[in-house]
Nucleic acid binder design. Sequence first.
DNA 1: CATGAATGAGCTTTCATTCAT
DNA 2: GATGAATGAAAGCTCATTCAT
Lengths: 233, 233, 233, 233
Amino acid sequence: MSSSCPICEIAATVRAKRERRKDARPGELLAAALDLFVEKGFAGTRAEEVAKRAGVSKGTLFLYFSSKEELFKAVVRENISGRFDEWNEEFDNFQGTTPDMLRYCVKAWWERIGSTKASGITKLMMSEAGNFPELAAFYQTEVIQPGNDLLKRVLQRGVGRGEFQPMDLQYGVYAVLTPMLYLAMWKHSLGTCLANNASIDPEKYIAVHVETLLHGLSARPTAVAAPTIPATP
Amino acid sequence: MSSSCPICEIAATVRAKRERRKDARPGELLAAALDLFVEKGFAGTRAEEVAKRAGVSKGTLFLYFSSKEELFKAVVRENISGRFDEWNEEFDNFQGTTPDMLRYCVKAWWERIGSTKASGITKLMMSEAGNFPELAAFYQTEVIQPGNDLLKRVLQRGVGRGEFQPMDLQYGVYAVLTPMLYLAMWKHSLGTCLANNASIDPEKYIAVHVETLLHGLSARPTAVAAPTIPATP
Amino acid sequence: MSSSCPICEIAATVRAKRERRKDARPGELLAAALDLFVEKGFAGTRAEEVAKRAGVSKGTLFLYFSSKEELFKAVVRENISGRFDEWNEEFDNFQGTTPDMLRYCVKAWWERIGSTKASGITKLMMSEAGNFPELAAFYQTEVIQPGNDLLKRVLQRGVGRGEFQPMDLQYGVYAVLTPMLYLAMWKHSLGTCLANNASIDPEKYIAVHVETLLHGLSARPTAVAAPTIPATP
Amino acid sequence: MSSSCPICEIAATVRAKRERRKDARPGELLAAALDLFVEKGFAGTRAEEVAKRAGVSKGTLFLYFSSKEELFKAVVRENISGRFDEWNEEFDNFQGTTPDMLRYCVKAWWERIGSTKASGITKLMMSEAGNFPELAAFYQTEVIQPGNDLLKRVLQRGVGRGEFQPMDLQYGVYAVLTPMLYLAMWKHSLGTCLANNASIDPEKYIAVHVETLLHGLSARPTAVAAPTIPATP
DNA sequence: CATGAATGAGCTTTCATTCAT
DNA sequence: GATGAATGAAAGCTCATTCAT
């Protein structure tokens, strides 16, 4: 490779760069695919577009993922696990009232999932679950169940400490989770096409939600501080 | 039909049968389309499949609906937007407290939309809105806006009568609507693939939701300080 | 049929009208078909449109003409023959100079064919001949040949009387005919879609044509260089 | 190519072969399309047929031309409108009398268009203009207008140099053009189906036409009763 | 490994033709 | 005879997937 041919030199450079980036390819493709699947849905995303956004050719995409469906599965797998250990630990160590814990919990979700691209996966799963039952089961095991358990422990703590009324924990979880998941859906579906006057301010929406919720959950003989939906700003 | 002219009778019968058949077609097609759109999404549903399920040929479908998109709009009109007149009237005539009105409202939604196949349309729009902006705009105009307005009037009534605290009506609407819409989503996406032990009992879910909500909304004598989202602990 | 049933009476009236018009049906269909074929071409004309313009149903059209192609053939047959006898006689009796005869000839063509819907048939044949060889042969025998013969006799008369130079009669015929046929084409094709500034005034066009032609054909005392086919320049 | 690097050479060869193939595709497709459009008309030609005749698949056609209409436009550009620059220049540089120029002009048209398959496009536009207004407008802009302008300049030159009588240039253009266009029509419609004895010898037809025309246009000292193309009214 | 030209199954839509009424 | 609802064969176009280079 000490050839004097300049083209060969360029080729060598290219090859070097290629080899350096070879391992990065799947990751770049997955990132591009996440973006596009979230933005346009599964059927609406063209394989070539994914490849182009990842800076490779259509052929290369199929070199790493045997089909569009496999790519989709890989995207979901890549993006949904691995955060729960950290979170569980965080909550085990939480010092403070349970209402504050719940506020923190919701805030953390918004900062780490809801406001990031990762929220698109939620929407993705909702939209396409019907067409990928296998993936849906995987999602249930790896994401939904752990999230459920984590929230249940928070609510149980509140009940145990007399901060919350006794409740059916599962439905308590739903009451916390639902609007957040819905917000993720909204952000990535109708919310993107609607006139501004119909759009939701996510942070305000979440604040209203959690306070209303805490008001509803709280054990209060003496209704001291009534949280409310704030008056029109 | 006591006519003495047998030809007239036969002709009338013939026409009747034909017209009965012709009149039935759109309904059969709309029912088939609802099923399939909900099951497979808009893009995933083939026109020919709709026709086949309705027991007619591909051509016949286009005899009644000029395009797949028009078929979808007709499905939405048939199942949702066509009913707002009736609902508006119903609520105009409602006698009783506003909390009861809201309970009735949520119950009615569940019985007429949520628990029926029509709830699939909600899920459909969430999933496909990004890919079919024209459909999204249609849905916004024909469904979201009227639904929004109806709920706003209910909440306004409660505030006006001193049953609810003053509030930002738009976010009040969201607080009512969101879990219901989310339930619709759930039913038609992940909910269809999950093990039974993780499934939601919709009626209970809705009941919990509305009571928690009413608790949060209700005007209480000592509404001192509105709690807010605290800073990160 | 002395029934007292008013519907039966109406039916009887309808039937009578129907029978009265039964023989007229094919003619009405042919007229409608001529209009539409000329206006939109063969492929561009829909069978249902023809039926509607004729005031009958689609089914009836196929009752009289076994296929769209048969309808087309019938239109051409209906509209192209039967005028030549009259014309031949007219010209046999013509008194006057041959240039005047030719002027009259061109004028007559314009008035009876060129300016009427019948000119559309010319365009029709030109456009569709390739797809209907059988029809083309028919047209050749029934229309082109007789027209050719008639014009040849006119030119021959001029040559015989010393009004025109000797010439190749066949090409003389083409020289007369061509611009007229072209005009018919133009009227029914590009002429209908072009900006006004590019449009032709047919009468002026024909006048220019015939006078230029007569100038070229006329025997002149100083017929020094009768225009001939020059060697390739 | 005297490089010592064998890989470079191979790569170059490969790319060359591939590019040669890719570059050839549009030409092959255009040739096939010209054939078929002329033979069967625009509507009558199936995209797949064009592809098959070019030896490729349906999909490949749409790789190079985004729609059937674009394919047609490309055929027109390739065969006619793309040549006007060359022709305009040719005539700007012409040395000789204007009658000779006109003879050359007609001869050139015959050799480059009339006698080639390209003449079929003229017929095509005549036949299909009514059904495809967009194509007609394209043809008007890209072909008719430039051709018109070119001929007008020729005639104007003759008038300016005293070789032709003053005339209405637009109708002069028609007088030149019409028989040529008609010839193109004839060749591709009825002419293809008629017995030999009725067929036209195009070269002789054109020669007769142009000489008769020049005789009619020419300015002659003793223009006693010279019928002429009248000056603009 | 990477490329991108090529493929062809699949989708929506049109419309001549049929046939039960 | 007349009707018009129903049919289904095409046709234009898209795009996941393949494979020669």
